[in-house]
Design a protein around this nucleic acid. Sequence first.
DNA 1: TTATTTTTGTAATATTCCTTTAACAAGAAA
DNA 2: TTTCTTGTTAAAGGAATATTACAAAAATAA
Lengths: 236, 236
Amino acid sequence: MISVIKVLVLDDEDAIRSFIRVNLKRHNFFVIEAATGEEALEKAEQNKDIKIALLDIMLPGIDGLEVCKCLRKEYPTIGIIMLTAKGQEDDKITGLSGGADDYVVKPFSPNELIARINALLRRMNVLSPQENTQRKALFSGPFMVNLDNRKVLKNEQELELTPKEYGIIKFFIENDNKAMSRNEILDEVWGKNYVGDVKVVDVNIRRLRQKIETDPANPQFIERVWGFGYCWRGGD
Amino acid sequence: MISVIKVLVLDDEDAIRSFIRVNLKRHNFFVIEAATGEEALEKAEQNKDIKIALLDIMLPGIDGLEVCKCLRKEYPTIGIIMLTAKGQEDDKITGLSGGADDYVVKPFSPNELIARINALLRRMNVLSPQENTQRKALFSGPFMVNLDNRKVLKNEQELELTPKEYGIIKFFIENDNKAMSRNEILDEVWGKNYVGDVKVVDVNIRRLRQKIETDPANPQFIERVWGFGYCWRGGD
DNA sequence: TTATTTTTGTAATATTCCTTTAACAAGAAA
DNA sequence: TTTCTTGTTAAAGGAATATTACAAAAATAA
Protein backbone atom coordinates (compact mmCIF):
# COMPACT_ATOMS: atom_id res chain seq x y z
CA MET A 1 0.00 0.00 0.00
CA ILE A 2 1.48 3.26 -1.14
CA SER A 3 0.73 5.92 1.40
CA VAL A 4 1.21 9.49 0.22
CA ILE A 5 4.25 11.14 1.69
CA LYS A 6 3.95 14.80 2.65
CA VAL A 7 6.97 17.02 2.10
CA LEU A 8 7.33 20.55 3.42
CA VAL A 9 9.39 22.82 1.19
CA LEU A 10 10.82 26.04 2.61
CA ASP A 11 12.61 28.43 0.29
CA ASP A 12 12.16 32.14 -0.31
CA GLU A 13 12.85 31.87 -4.03
CA ASP A 14 9.75 31.11 -6.02
CA ALA A 15 11.76 29.55 -8.81
CA ILE A 16 13.39 27.02 -6.53
CA ARG A 17 10.17 26.09 -4.76
CA SER A 18 8.53 25.63 -8.10
CA PHE A 19 11.42 23.51 -9.34
CA ILE A 20 11.21 21.31 -6.28
CA ARG A 21 7.43 21.08 -6.36
CA VAL A 22 7.30 19.93 -9.95
CA ASN A 23 9.87 17.26 -9.40
CA LEU A 24 8.47 15.97 -6.13
CA LYS A 25 4.97 15.75 -7.54
CA ARG A 26 6.28 13.70 -10.39
CA HIS A 27 7.39 11.19 -7.81
CA ASN A 28 4.06 11.16 -6.03
CA PHE A 29 5.02 13.26 -3.07
CA PHE A 30 2.47 15.62 -1.60
CA VAL A 31 4.07 19.05 -1.50
CA ILE A 32 3.45 21.76 1.07
CA GLU A 33 5.18 25.05 0.36
CA ALA A 34 6.38 27.89 2.52
CA ALA A 35 8.25 31.06 1.58
CA THR A 36 9.18 32.14 5.11
CA GLY A 37 10.20 30.47 8.32
CA GLU A 38 6.99 31.60 10.01
CA GLU A 39 4.89 30.13 7.23
CA ALA A 40 6.76 26.88 7.43
CA LEU A 41 6.09 26.48 11.15
CA GLU A 42 2.45 27.33 10.56
CA LYS A 43 2.08 24.73 7.84
CA ALA A 44 3.80 22.17 10.02
CA GLU A 45 1.28 22.90 12.75
CA GLN A 46 -1.55 22.27 10.31
CA ASN A 47 -0.08 19.09 8.86
CA LYS A 48 1.08 16.84 11.64
CA ASP A 49 1.77 14.02 9.21
CA ILE A 50 4.60 15.72 7.31
CA LYS A 51 7.34 13.18 6.83
CA ILE A 52 10.09 15.27 5.26
CA ALA A 53 11.05 18.94 5.44
CA LEU A 54 13.34 20.60 2.91
CA LEU A 55 14.70 23.79 4.42
CA ASP A 56 16.77 26.47 2.75
CA ILE A 57 19.29 27.82 5.24
CA MET A 58 19.69 31.35 3.95
CA LEU A 59 16.44 33.16 4.54
CA PRO A 60 15.40 36.64 5.57
CA GLY A 61 13.75 36.65 9.00
CA ILE A 62 13.67 33.31 10.78
CA ASP A 63 16.24 31.32 8.88
CA GLY A 64 16.28 27.65 8.00
CA LEU A 65 18.35 26.69 11.03
CA GLU A 66 15.82 28.20 13.42
CA VAL A 67 13.02 26.39 11.65
CA CYS A 68 15.03 23.20 11.79
CA LYS A 69 15.46 23.46 15.57
CA CYS A 70 11.79 24.25 16.13
CA LEU A 71 10.61 21.39 13.95
CA ARG A 72 12.98 18.96 15.58
CA LYS A 73 11.74 19.97 19.00
CA GLU A 74 8.03 19.85 18.19
CA TYR A 75 8.03 16.92 15.78
CA PRO A 76 11.02 14.70 16.54
CA THR A 77 10.09 12.07 13.94
CA ILE A 78 10.18 14.40 10.96
CA GLY A 79 13.03 13.99 8.46
CA ILE A 80 14.90 17.21 7.79
CA ILE A 81 17.06 17.97 4.78
CA MET A 82 18.82 21.33 4.58
CA LEU A 83 19.35 23.11 1.27
CA THR A 84 22.66 24.92 1.29
CA ALA A 85 24.36 26.98 -1.36
CA LYS A 86 27.88 26.05 -2.27
CA GLY A 87 30.38 28.02 -0.25
CA GLN A 88 28.18 27.72 2.82
CA GLU A 89 29.97 24.45 3.56
CA ASP A 90 30.31 25.44 7.22
CA ASP A 91 26.57 25.52 7.45
CA LYS A 92 26.57 21.80 6.82
CA ILE A 93 27.94 21.08 10.21
CA THR A 94 25.80 23.77 11.71
CA GLY A 95 22.78 22.37 9.98
CA LEU A 96 23.42 18.82 11.04
CA SER A 97 24.25 19.76 14.60
CA GLY A 98 21.05 21.81 14.56
CA GLY A 99 19.18 18.57 14.16
CA ALA A 100 19.03 18.10 10.40
CA ASP A 101 19.35 14.60 8.99
CA ASP A 102 20.99 15.46 5.70
CA TYR A 103 21.82 18.35 3.42
CA VAL A 104 21.86 18.93 -0.31
CA VAL A 105 24.18 21.44 -1.90
CA LYS A 106 22.72 23.69 -4.55
CA PRO A 107 22.62 23.23 -7.41
CA PHE A 108 21.12 19.81 -7.17
CA SER A 109 19.50 17.76 -9.87
CA PRO A 110 15.94 16.56 -9.42
CA ASN A 111 17.28 13.05 -9.30
CA GLU A 112 19.74 13.86 -6.56
CA LEU A 113 17.02 15.43 -4.44
CA ILE A 114 14.69 12.51 -4.93
CA ALA A 115 17.52 10.13 -4.11
CA ARG A 116 18.29 11.97 -0.86
CA ILE A 117 14.68 12.02 0.20
CA ASN A 118 14.29 8.37 -0.57
CA ALA A 119 17.48 7.53 1.27
CA LEU A 120 16.26 9.43 4.31
CA LEU A 121 12.86 7.78 4.18
CA ARG A 122 14.61 4.46 4.16
CA ARG A 123 16.74 5.38 7.15
CA MET A 124 13.63 6.60 8.93
CA ASN A 125 12.05 3.23 8.36
CA VAL A 126 8.70 4.68 7.43
CA LEU A 127 8.53 2.63 4.25
CA SER A 128 7.05 -0.73 3.62
CA PRO A 129 9.55 -3.23 2.21
CA GLN A 130 8.17 -2.80 -1.32
CA GLU A 131 8.37 0.96 -1.11
CA ASN A 132 11.85 0.68 0.31
CA THR A 133 13.09 -1.16 -2.73
CA GLN A 134 11.17 1.09 -5.08
CA ARG A 135 12.96 4.15 -3.81
CA LYS A 136 16.52 3.25 -4.72
CA ALA A 137 16.18 4.34 -8.30
CA LEU A 138 16.98 6.73 -11.15
CA PHE A 139 14.20 8.34 -13.13
CA SER A 140 14.03 9.68 -16.66
CA GLY A 141 10.84 10.27 -18.56
CA PRO A 142 8.77 7.09 -18.37
CA PHE A 143 11.77 5.08 -17.17
CA MET A 144 12.74 4.01 -13.71
CA VAL A 145 16.04 2.30 -13.10
CA ASN A 146 15.98 0.42 -9.83
CA LEU A 147 19.58 0.41 -8.68
CA ASP A 148 18.77 -2.07 -5.99
CA ASN A 149 17.53 -4.98 -7.98
CA ARG A 150 18.80 -3.73 -11.37
CA LYS A 151 15.36 -3.80 -12.88
CA VAL A 152 14.21 -1.19 -15.36
CA LEU A 153 10.60 -0.16 -15.73
CA LYS A 154 9.01 1.76 -18.55
CA ASN A 155 5.61 3.07 -17.52
CA GLU A 156 5.57 0.69 -14.53
CA GLN A 157 6.17 -2.13 -16.99
CA GLU A 158 9.25 -4.22 -16.45
CA LEU A 159 11.77 -4.48 -19.27
CA GLU A 160 13.88 -7.59 -19.71
CA LEU A 161 17.34 -6.16 -20.12
CA THR A 162 20.64 -7.98 -20.29
CA PRO A 163 23.53 -6.80 -18.09
CA LYS A 164 25.11 -4.77 -20.91
CA GLU A 165 21.80 -3.20 -21.81
CA TYR A 166 21.25 -2.32 -18.17
CA GLY A 167 24.71 -0.75 -18.00
CA ILE A 168 24.05 1.32 -21.08
CA ILE A 169 20.67 2.67 -20.06
CA LYS A 170 21.92 3.44 -16.56
CA PHE A 171 24.90 5.34 -17.97
CA PHE A 172 22.64 7.19 -20.38
CA ILE A 173 20.16 8.24 -17.72
CA GLU A 174 22.98 9.40 -15.48
CA ASN A 175 24.02 11.65 -18.38
CA ASP A 176 20.70 12.87 -19.68
CA ASN A 177 20.86 15.03 -22.77
CA LYS A 178 24.58 14.72 -23.14
CA ALA A 179 26.10 13.35 -26.30
CA MET A 180 28.23 10.32 -25.43
CA SER A 181 30.88 8.91 -27.73
CA ARG A 182 31.10 5.17 -28.34
CA ASN A 183 34.34 5.09 -26.44
CA GLU A 184 32.85 6.76 -23.38
CA ILE A 185 30.11 4.17 -23.38
CA LEU A 186 32.63 1.40 -23.91
CA ASP A 187 34.81 2.61 -21.03
CA GLU A 188 31.87 2.85 -18.68
CA VAL A 189 29.96 -0.29 -19.52
CA TRP A 190 32.65 -2.66 -20.76
CA GLY A 191 35.45 -1.20 -18.66
CA LYS A 192 38.64 0.55 -19.68
CA ASN A 193 40.49 -2.73 -20.19
CA TYR A 194 38.15 -4.03 -22.81
CA VAL A 195 39.84 -5.07 -26.03
CA GLY A 196 37.69 -5.45 -29.06
CA ASP A 197 35.78 -3.55 -31.65
CA VAL A 198 33.88 -0.41 -30.66
CA LYS A 199 31.12 -1.71 -32.89
CA VAL A 200 29.78 -3.82 -30.04
CA VAL A 201 28.27 -0.61 -28.78
CA ASP A 202 26.22 -0.21 -31.92
CA VAL A 203 24.86 -3.71 -31.76
CA ASN A 204 23.96 -3.42 -28.11
CA ILE A 205 22.35 -0.05 -28.66
CA ARG A 206 20.33 -1.65 -31.38
CA ARG A 207 19.15 -4.39 -29.02
CA LEU A 208 18.37 -1.89 -26.31
CA ARG A 209 16.37 0.26 -28.69
CA GLN A 210 14.42 -2.79 -29.72
CA LYS A 211 13.33 -3.15 -26.11
CA ILE A 212 12.77 0.41 -24.97
CA GLU A 213 11.65 2.38 -27.99
CA THR A 214 8.02 2.57 -28.98
CA ASP A 215 9.07 2.55 -32.61
CA PRO A 216 12.63 1.21 -32.79
CA ALA A 217 12.90 2.37 -36.39
CA ASN A 218 12.43 5.95 -35.15
CA PRO A 219 14.15 6.03 -31.80
CA GLN A 220 13.09 8.84 -29.50
CA PHE A 221 15.09 8.04 -26.37
CA ILE A 222 18.43 6.98 -27.77
CA GLU A 223 19.28 9.53 -30.41
CA ARG A 224 22.17 9.07 -32.75
CA VAL A 225 24.69 11.86 -33.03
CA TRP A 226 26.26 11.51 -36.42
CA GLY A 227 29.99 11.19 -36.44
CA PHE A 228 30.06 11.20 -32.66
CA GLY A 229 27.92 8.73 -30.78
CA TYR A 230 24.56 8.68 -29.05
CA CYS A 231 22.54 10.92 -26.77
CA TRP A 232 19.83 10.07 -24.24
CA ARG A 233 16.74 12.22 -24.37
CA GLY A 234 14.70 11.64 -21.29
CA GLY A 235 12.56 14.59 -22.19
CA ASP A 236 12.23 16.02 -18.66
CA MET B 1 13.40 25.01 -14.23
CA ILE B 2 15.11 28.11 -15.40
CA SER B 3 15.28 30.33 -12.39
CA VAL B 4 15.92 33.93 -13.28
CA ILE B 5 19.40 35.11 -12.41
CA LYS B 6 19.68 38.64 -11.10
CA VAL B 7 22.67 40.68 -12.16
CA LEU B 8 23.63 43.99 -10.63
CA VAL B 9 25.28 46.38 -13.08
CA LEU B 10 27.23 49.32 -11.72
CA ASP B 11 28.60 51.88 -14.18
CA ASP B 12 28.30 55.64 -14.26
CA GLU B 13 28.02 55.79 -18.02
CA ASP B 14 24.45 55.41 -19.25
CA ALA B 15 25.60 54.11 -22.60
CA ILE B 16 27.56 51.26 -21.07
CA ARG B 17 24.81 50.29 -18.65
CA SER B 18 22.38 50.27 -21.52
CA PHE B 19 24.71 48.19 -23.65
CA ILE B 20 25.12 45.65 -20.89
CA ARG B 21 21.41 45.63 -20.05
CA VAL B 22 20.35 44.88 -23.59
CA ASN B 23 22.77 42.04 -23.92
CA LEU B 24 22.09 40.48 -20.55
CA LYS B 25 18.36 40.61 -21.11
CA ARG B 26 18.85 38.82 -24.36
CA HIS B 27 20.25 35.96 -22.33
CA ASN B 28 17.42 35.98 -19.83
CA PHE B 29 19.23 37.67 -17.02
CA PHE B 30 17.30 40.01 -14.76
CA VAL B 31 19.19 43.29 -14.73
CA ILE B 32 19.40 45.69 -11.82
CA GLU B 33 21.19 48.93 -12.61
CA ALA B 34 23.08 51.42 -10.53
CA ALA B 35 24.92 54.56 -11.57
CA THR B 36 26.77 55.15 -8.31
CA GLY B 37 28.37 53.06 -5.65
CA GLU B 38 25.79 54.16 -3.10
CA GLU B 39 22.96 53.16 -5.38
CA ALA B 40 24.56 49.80 -6.01
CA LEU B 41 24.75 49.00 -2.29
CA GLU B 42 21.18 50.14 -1.87
CA LYS B 43 19.95 47.91 -4.66
CA ALA B 44 21.91 45.01 -3.26
CA GLU B 45 20.19 45.58 0.07
CA GLN B 46 16.81 45.42 -1.65
CA ASN B 47 17.63 42.36 -3.73
CA LYS B 48 19.21 39.72 -1.55
CA ASP B 49 19.09 37.20 -4.36
CA ILE B 50 21.49 38.95 -6.69
CA LYS B 51 23.80 36.31 -8.07
CA ILE B 52 26.28 38.37 -10.07
CA ALA B 53 27.57 41.93 -9.78
CA LEU B 54 29.32 43.73 -12.62
CA LEU B 55 31.25 46.63 -11.16
CA ASP B 56 33.05 49.36 -13.02
CA ILE B 57 36.18 50.29 -11.10
CA MET B 58 36.56 53.93 -12.07
CA LEU B 59 33.69 55.85 -10.52
CA PRO B 60 33.20 59.21 -8.90
CA GLY B 61 32.45 58.90 -5.17
CA ILE B 62 32.55 55.35 -3.82
CA ASP B 63 34.44 53.47 -6.48
CA GLY B 64 33.94 49.92 -7.70
CA LEU B 65 36.59 48.49 -5.44
CA GLU B 66 34.88 49.84 -2.34
CA VAL B 67 31.58 48.43 -3.53
CA CYS B 68 33.28 45.13 -4.22
CA LYS B 69 34.64 44.93 -0.68
CA CYS B 70 31.30 45.85 0.87
CA LEU B 71 29.39 43.36 -1.22
CA ARG B 72 31.87 40.61 -0.50
CA LYS B 73 31.57 41.29 3.20
CA GLU B 74 27.78 41.50 3.32
CA TYR B 75 26.94 38.87 0.71
CA PRO B 76 29.80 36.40 0.51
CA THR B 77 28.07 34.17 -2.04
CA ILE B 78 27.65 36.83 -4.70
CA GLY B 79 29.78 36.52 -7.83
CA ILE B 80 31.69 39.69 -8.65
CA ILE B 81 33.14 40.67 -12.00
CA MET B 82 35.06 43.94 -12.29
CA LEU B 83 34.90 46.05 -15.41
CA THR B 84 38.24 47.71 -16.02
CA ALA B 85 39.26 50.10 -18.74
CA LYS B 86 42.28 49.21 -20.83
CA GLY B 87 45.41 50.58 -19.27
CA GLN B 88 44.06 50.02 -15.77
CA GLU B 89 45.65 46.57 -15.87
CA ASP B 90 47.08 47.15 -12.39
CA ASP B 91 43.56 47.34 -11.11
CA LYS B 92 43.16 43.74 -12.09
CA ILE B 93 45.25 42.60 -9.23
CA THR B 94 43.67 45.17 -6.98
CA GLY B 95 40.23 44.09 -8.06
CA LEU B 96 40.83 40.40 -7.54
CA SER B 97 42.57 40.91 -4.23
CA GLY B 98 39.62 43.10 -3.26
CA GLY B 99 37.48 40.01 -3.48
CA ALA B 100 36.38 40.00 -7.10
CA ASP B 101 36.05 36.68 -8.92
CA ASP B 102 36.94 37.87 -12.38
CA TYR B 103 37.43 40.96 -14.49
CA VAL B 104 36.66 42.03 -18.01
CA VAL B 105 38.68 44.62 -19.86
CA LYS B 106 36.79 47.32 -21.73
CA PRO B 107 35.92 47.35 -24.49
CA PHE B 108 34.41 43.89 -24.29
CA SER B 109 32.06 42.09 -26.62
CA PRO B 110 28.67 40.97 -25.35
CA ASN B 111 29.66 37.38 -25.92
CA GLU B 112 32.77 37.71 -23.84
CA LEU B 113 30.73 39.16 -21.00
CA ILE B 114 28.11 36.43 -21.22
CA ALA B 115 30.80 33.79 -21.37
CA ARG B 116 32.48 35.19 -18.26
CA ILE B 117 29.22 35.35 -16.37
CA ASN B 118 28.30 31.82 -17.34
CA ALA B 119 31.73 30.53 -16.45
CA LEU B 120 31.49 32.21 -13.06
CA LEU B 121 28.00 30.88 -12.44
CA ARG B 122 29.30 27.42 -13.17
CA ARG B 123 32.22 27.89 -10.80
CA MET B 124 29.82 29.19 -8.17
CA ASN B 125 27.68 26.11 -8.59
CA VAL B 126 24.45 28.02 -8.27
CA LEU B 127 23.04 26.39 -11.34
CA SER B 128 20.87 23.35 -11.53
CA PRO B 129 22.39 20.65 -13.71
CA GLN B 130 20.06 21.50 -16.56
CA GLU B 131 21.00 25.15 -16.39
CA ASN B 132 24.60 24.16 -16.10
CA THR B 133 24.30 22.27 -19.33
CA GLN B 134 22.47 25.13 -20.93
CA ARG B 135 25.30 27.40 -20.00
CA LYS B 136 27.99 25.26 -21.51
CA ALA B 137 27.21 26.96 -24.72
CA LEU B 138 28.45 29.56 -27.12
CA PHE B 139 26.27 32.47 -28.15
CA SER B 140 26.43 34.65 -31.17
CA GLY B 141 23.57 36.76 -32.40
CA PRO B 142 20.55 34.48 -32.67
CA PHE B 143 22.70 31.36 -32.42
CA MET B 144 23.37 29.10 -29.47
CA VAL B 145 25.83 26.25 -29.74
CA ASN B 146 25.26 23.69 -27.01
CA LEU B 147 28.66 22.12 -26.45
CA ASP B 148 27.16 19.40 -24.31
CA ASN B 149 24.78 17.75 -26.70
CA ARG B 150 26.22 19.32 -29.84
CA LYS B 151 23.00 20.94 -30.89
CA VAL B 152 22.79 24.35 -32.54
CA LEU B 153 19.78 26.61 -32.18
CA LYS B 154 18.87 29.68 -34.19
CA ASN B 155 16.19 31.69 -32.42
CA GLU B 156 15.43 28.72 -30.15
CA GLN B 157 14.90 26.66 -33.29
CA GLU B 158 17.03 23.59 -33.70
CA LEU B 159 19.16 23.35 -36.82
CA GLU B 160 19.98 19.99 -38.36
CA LEU B 161 23.69 20.23 -38.93
CA THR B 162 26.10 17.59 -40.09
CA PRO B 163 29.27 16.96 -38.07
CA LYS B 164 31.36 19.11 -40.43
CA GLU B 165 28.82 21.90 -40.37
CA TYR B 166 28.77 21.75 -36.59
CA GLY B 167 32.54 21.93 -36.50
CA ILE B 168 32.60 24.94 -38.77
CA ILE B 169 29.99 26.99 -36.99
CA LYS B 170 31.55 26.19 -33.62
CA PHE B 171 34.95 27.27 -34.87
CA PHE B 172 33.49 30.43 -36.36
CA ILE B 173 31.64 31.44 -33.24
CA GLU B 174 34.69 30.80 -31.13
CA ASN B 175 36.42 33.28 -33.39
CA ASP B 176 33.71 35.84 -33.87
CA ASN B 177 34.55 38.64 -36.24
CA LYS B 178 37.91 37.15 -37.10
CA ALA B 179 38.78 36.32 -40.67
CA MET B 180 39.67 32.63 -40.97
CA SER B 181 41.57 31.21 -43.90
CA ARG B 182 40.36 28.04 -45.58
CA ASN B 183 43.37 26.23 -44.24
CA GLU B 184 42.69 27.27 -40.67
CA ILE B 185 39.17 25.98 -41.03
CA LEU B 186 40.44 22.80 -42.65
CA ASP B 187 42.99 22.20 -39.90
CA GLU B 188 40.41 22.75 -37.19
CA VAL B 189 37.45 20.88 -38.60
CA TRP B 190 39.03 18.24 -40.80
CA GLY B 191 42.19 17.86 -38.78
CA LYS B 192 45.78 18.60 -39.69
CA ASN B 193 46.25 15.23 -41.34
CA TYR B 194 43.57 15.77 -43.88
CA VAL B 195 44.67 15.23 -47.47
CA GLY B 196 42.45 16.59 -50.17
CA ASP B 197 41.29 19.73 -51.81
CA VAL B 198 40.74 22.85 -49.73
CA LYS B 199 37.64 23.39 -51.82
CA VAL B 200 35.67 21.12 -49.51
CA VAL B 201 35.54 24.10 -47.22
CA ASP B 202 33.73 26.19 -49.80
CA VAL B 203 31.17 23.51 -50.46
CA ASN B 204 30.52 22.96 -46.78
CA ILE B 205 30.28 26.67 -46.16
CA ARG B 206 27.74 26.80 -48.93
CA ARG B 207 25.64 24.11 -47.29
CA LEU B 208 25.99 25.68 -43.89
CA ARG B 209 24.83 29.01 -45.28
CA GLN B 210 21.86 27.27 -46.81
CA LYS B 211 20.85 26.18 -43.32
CA ILE B 212 21.66 29.22 -41.23
CA GLU B 213 21.26 32.27 -43.44
CA THR B 214 17.92 33.98 -43.84
CA ASP B 215 18.82 34.72 -47.44
CA PRO B 216 21.62 32.36 -48.46
CA ALA B 217 22.22 34.40 -51.59
CA ASN B 218 23.13 37.36 -49.38
CA PRO B 219 24.88 35.82 -46.43
CA GLN B 220 24.95 37.97 -43.33
CA PHE B 221 26.60 35.61 -40.85
CA ILE B 222 29.31 33.97 -42.92
CA GLU B 223 31.02 36.73 -44.81
CA ARG B 224 33.57 36.05 -47.49
CA VAL B 225 36.97 37.67 -47.22
CA TRP B 226 38.30 37.98 -50.70
CA GLY B 227 41.54 36.21 -51.40
CA PHE B 228 41.64 34.94 -47.84
CA GLY B 229 38.70 32.98 -46.50
CA TYR B 230 35.63 33.66 -44.42
CA CYS B 231 34.61 35.65 -41.40
CA TRP B 232 31.82 35.11 -38.89
CA ARG B 233 29.71 38.14 -38.08
CA GLY B 234 27.60 37.43 -35.08
CA GLY B 235 26.54 41.02 -35.05
CA ASP B 236 26.76 41.60 -31.30
C1' DT C 1 29.95 -32.73 -14.54
C1' DT C 2 26.91 -32.09 -18.91
C1' DA C 3 23.14 -29.97 -21.13
C1' DT C 4 20.55 -26.04 -21.99
C1' DT C 5 19.65 -21.42 -22.25
C1' DT C 6 20.93 -16.81 -22.41
C1' DT C 7 23.99 -13.31 -23.43
C1' DT C 8 27.58 -11.37 -26.04
C1' DG C 9 30.86 -10.55 -29.87
C1' DT C 10 31.99 -10.84 -34.68
C1' DA C 11 31.38 -10.23 -39.26
C1' DA C 12 29.02 -9.54 -43.42
C1' DT C 13 25.41 -6.93 -45.69
C1' DA C 14 22.34 -3.24 -46.29
C1' DT C 15 21.11 1.34 -45.86
C1' DT C 16 21.29 5.89 -44.97
C1' DC C 17 23.47 9.93 -44.69
C1' DC C 18 27.51 12.77 -45.47
C1' DT C 19 31.56 14.26 -48.04
C1' DT C 20 34.14 14.85 -51.98
C1' DT C 21 34.92 15.60 -56.59
C1' DA C 22 34.41 17.89 -60.67
C1' DA C 23 32.45 20.77 -64.00
C1' DC C 24 30.41 24.90 -64.83
C1' DA C 25 28.57 29.56 -63.81
C1' DA C 26 29.05 33.88 -61.87
C1' DG C 27 31.47 37.49 -60.12
C1' DA C 28 35.52 40.47 -59.09
C1' DA C 29 39.98 42.11 -60.22
C1' DA C 30 43.63 43.20 -63.34
C1' DT D 1 39.03 41.12 -72.24
C1' DT D 2 41.34 37.91 -69.59
C1' DT D 3 42.34 35.85 -65.40
C1' DC D 4 41.44 34.54 -61.00
C1' DT D 5 38.44 33.63 -57.26
C1' DT D 6 34.28 32.09 -55.46
C1' DG D 7 29.52 30.05 -55.76
C1' DT D 8 26.47 26.45 -57.38
C1' DT D 9 24.98 22.05 -58.63
C1' DA D 10 24.82 17.21 -59.49
C1' DA D 11 26.56 12.95 -59.07
C1' DA D 12 29.94 9.72 -57.49
C1' DG D 13 31.99 7.99 -53.77
C1' DG D 14 32.77 7.05 -49.12
C1' DA D 15 31.95 6.70 -44.37
C1' DA D 16 29.01 6.03 -40.51
C1' DT D 17 25.29 3.54 -38.83
C1' DA D 18 21.69 -0.15 -38.84
C1' DT D 19 20.50 -4.72 -39.40
C1' DT D 20 20.99 -9.52 -39.44
C1' DA D 21 22.73 -14.04 -38.75
C1' DC D 22 25.79 -16.91 -36.62
C1' DA D 23 29.22 -18.49 -33.45
C1' DA D 24 31.44 -18.16 -29.10
C1' DA D 25 31.21 -17.56 -24.43
C1' DA D 26 29.06 -17.28 -20.15
C1' DA D 27 25.55 -18.31 -17.00
C1' DT D 28 22.15 -21.43 -15.40
C1' DA D 29 19.92 -25.65 -14.69
C1' DA D 30 19.77 -30.59 -14.56
